[in-house]
Amino acid sequence: MEKMIRLAHGAGGVLSHELHKYIVERLGGQDASALADGAVLDLDEMGAGQGGRLVFTTDSFVIVPRKFPGGDIGKLAVCGTINDLAVMGARPVAISMALVIEEGLETEKLGEYLESAAMVAAECDVRIVTGDTKVVERGSADRLFINTSGIGITEGGNEIGPQMARPGQKILINGNLGDHSIAVVSAREGLSFAGQIESDCAPLFGLIGNVLEAAGGKVKVMRDPTRGGLASVLNEIAGSSRVNIRIDEAEIPVNDKVMGACGLLGYDVFHLANEGKCVFFIEDDDGAVENALQAMHAHPLGRDAAVIGEVEGIVDEGATPRVILKTIIGGRRIIDVLTGDLLPRIC
């Protein structure tokens, strides 16, 4: 394999075959037909029982830098899709991966990203079953874009969704807010906040499975606060369920360094993206909340888990559902949705 991807690698000839072979190998050398144009999935083999339903999701990944503390674009692409399935209550079973490569990308780097994608997939027992590769001219893409789609299976039964928030439910999160955004911004801009902050990029399927097991049918809403952060997710849920939500600042887990970085750059921690966090709304009876919290604390991705707030009242017709923060010093304010991009302020 050549050191750099050239346009000819996308032309369909011998070089394309080489690239294709390279990709399949890096993705873990799965069965020879792994990256064929389509995959045939056997529902029985996947363990879809009676009443089981398929969940289907897709997401595209564009990030600069492609490698950052705690992950890279390959890991992010697989985690993102696994997490989208997991928060739907589904067990991920198969993923597709489409690559748009700008000519000039170093082959070795592509290999690294694919290997980290394969590693996460293997860890979660998910197969990358089909894919596509396009090589585009310099200037037509920013080095590498990845699209992943995923199929998962849910047993059905318990209805989970953003419209299911009801007064009295407790709101839980499995750990520190904002690590991913600050890790990426630091790597991109060459900033260092008294040592490195690592992205929280991780597959949440295992943790979510444990929580669902521990809290039975009491889990009513699950969402991963990625781009737009906790603020976006909570406002969306408040809007879908037409409820007010209250969050307690004192209970929200945040790394000190992330807090410091926010102060410096003028970011609101509630707007920062996370790639390994899930917000749960859980009915507070039969010890479900305590059980869920314990299940999270017992999992490596949930050591800093906390109950951060609760659903307050149903909103009157015509009124706007609010997400309200009770601040550390006892004041109150609205948690707003991020407008536009996250931009650093000047002073």
Binding site: G190, L191, S192, F193, G260, A261, L264, G330
Partner: peptide, 16 residues
Amino acid sequence: IGREIVVLNEERFRDP
């Protein structure tokens, strides 16, 4: 250029 930024612990200035 890499820039090391010292983050001060300001927690006592947020003491309820």
